[in-house]
Design a binder for these strands. Structure first.
Lengths: 181, 181
DNA sequence: CGCGGCTATGCAACTAGTTGCACTGCACCT
DNA sequence: AGGTGCAGTGCAACTAGTTGCATAGCCGCG
């Protein structure tokens, strides 16, 4: 399981509460590892028990108290161990592909609509990533260390979304062509 | 959940036993939807209860009896319904990205080794897909219907694996360059 | 003054997926 | 005779992830 490790990486970049982590998972971290607040709270609890993170409560005015977590020694060790250990490539679960493969068994127009919708969603994500690239990493060749690693992960997102948009376009063109005949 | 739907699509192409389905999930279907035999057997059982597939036992000589499943009317209806219904883009879980993002907290050499390993795995998959493309779809412009849909899904796999290989190469080059400085 | 939205945490119940094991019987190799 | 591998089905226990709900105070809007 990598949720623990994603949290460790994020907490190492900056300590924070479960709520703050959940927000990071909505944006940057969530681009390559999705998680809900429920999962995060439960996992943090487990990680405290394992001694991977430490937790101290912080009183706030005008809003509820929060628990701030930070990476402990054992957590850093676990992260180092995990980084060096081999992992499987992700198991693929792509339901758009299942739908395309079953296209002949349903309404073709509804399906092309669905594919077009996904195309637009991916195009939107691509735009978001490109905007971040332009704004946060204007000179990639000057990057090193942590900043470089963040940039490289973003590059992966850009490549993946671009591939998806192009694929959706290919699929739509081919299905429309097939339709016309 | 799309496992039911992946099974329906597969059974519609050809009826078969749980064992046979598991084998298809090891190769073609499994390229875009992973599943183990356990999951498949359990899901088939549930689908019989739902009336989506019918099942009849077939005695064999020289090997154990098997249960052959085929899509029922209710299954076809469910598939049509699902094809037309909107779905979310897949939630991304890419642990290589998590590892890269945490690269500064571990052994850089071990991590680049891991990235290179993934690069090779994806390159291998890409070769498999390209071989299938060449062998099974020599003239894509002549395809239509079911065959076209199979081809388009394969194209998605090719694009995805190619993007991953190229990304791994980019990451490796950048990290080595960073290392040298 | 009530309503929605934000910060903040969490339980309970559910669905989905993984891992390890168990059983049968045939074919083939050594 | 014993070992490996294939064909075939399945249970039990586990881990991971989702969904719905509960709580609670503050802030600003109309």
């Amino acid at each position: 399981m990598a949720l623990e490790h994603a949290i460790l990486v994020s907490l190492d970049e900056r300590s924070g509460s479960g709520y703050e982590l959940a927000q990071r998972f909505e944006k940057s971290i969530g681009f390559f590892w999705a998680a809900t607040h429920q999962q995060i709270y439960r996992t943090l609890k487990r990680m405290v028990e394992l001694g991977w993170v430490s937790c101290h409560e912080v009183a706030q005015e005008g809003r509820p108290d929060k628990k701030v977590y930070e990476v402990a020694e054992a957590g850093r060790a676990e992260l180092a161990r995990w980084l060096a250990s081999p992992g499987e490539p992700e198991t693929i679960r792509h339901d758009l592909s299942v739908k395309i493969r079953g296209a002949s068994l349903g309404d073709a127009a509804a399906l092309t609509g669905e594919i077009a919708r996904h195309r637009d969603l991916h195009a939107e994500r691509l735009d978001v990533y490109l905007a971040i690239e332009k704004k946060d990493f204007p000179d990639p060749s000057a990057l090193s260390g942590r900043r470089l690693h963040q940039y490289l992960v973003l590059r992966g997102g850009i490549r993946a979304e671009r591939a998806l948009v192009e694929w959706c376009d290919e699929v739509l063109a081919a299905m429309r062509e097939d339709d016309r005949r």
